[in-house]
Write a protein that binds this DNA or RNA. Structure first.
Length: 225
DNA sequence: CAGTATCG
DNA sequence: ACTG
């Protein structure tokens, strides 16, 4: 049964008298018109293989409960996003090896420069590894101290069902498929929009030998100098 | 105080 | 554990 209360913000019909409504996705959300071609995807994948070699993917845990994520993660760049019983945070070292995160590959620095429209380089690239059953619940990227910079996301491998909401958790959401090579920018008002990954469609890409999906999210964490 | 990138 |  649909929620007919109407007492929600979201992708409301135009002309609704309530505040905080929009009939379009939040301003600043865009899927770049041209996805990365196969050679570019393969080059990025080679970079990520090196990252994974130096900083092995691990399974984060939810704050307080310790409940494991289905998604495995690692990072590259000066800072990496981690989650464990102590909470969400950015830190400069891998939580299991204690070593600094491997450097941000040049291709990702170049990609950021090309699409972010922000005058300072990214500090963190979170690498999310999805197997066929992995999901990421609706959330906002709000652990950064710099919201003027966008979040830039690159999809590699199997297609996923991506869900985009609004600025409040209860806002209406839209679902869209993201396929290998797609580049998404969450900037402007959409920088703090709720989003998540509802499902992976196995066998929809030949990029990753074992199947699955890799998502790279580039972020500026500290205020621009 | 409840909620959270969990899971349903 | 930390934010809102």
């Amino acid at each position: 049964m649909k929620d007919l209360s109407g007492a929600r913000t979201g992708f409301a019909r135009a002309g609704t008298p309530m505040k905080h409504h929009f009939d379009q996705p939040p301003e600043g959300f865009r899927i770049l018109p041209g996805r990365l071609d196969r050679p570019a995807q393969e080059a990025l994948l080679a970079d990520i293989r090196a990252v994974v070699e130096a900083a092995p993917p691990y399974r984060p845990q939810m704050p307080r409960t310790g409940k494991p994520f289905s998604v495995r993660m690692t990072n590259c760049g000066a800072l990496g996003w981690v989650s464990d019983r102590a909470g969400y945070r950015y830190q400069s070292v891998h939580p299991e090896t204690g070593r600094p995160w491997p450097p941000m590959p040049q291709a990702l620095m170049d990609l950021w420069r090309a699409v972010a429209d922000f005058p300072h380089p990214p500090e963190a690239c979170l690498v999310n590894l999805y197997d066929a059953d992995a999901k990421l619940g609706l959330h906002r990227d709000e652990d950064e101290d710099e919201f003027a910079a966008p979040v830039v996301s690159v999809s590699l491998g199997d297609t996923c069902l991506f869900r985009l909401g609004g600025l409040a958790r209860a806002d209406r959401t839209r679902s869209l498929r993201l396929s290998s090579g797609d580049i998404v920018v969450l900037g402007g008002a959409a920088r703090l929009a709720y989003h998540g990954v509802d499902r992976i469609y196995p066998g929809t890409s030949t990029l990753l030998p074992g199947g699955g999906r890799i998502n790279l999210t580039l972020r500026r964490v500290t205020p621009a100098p």
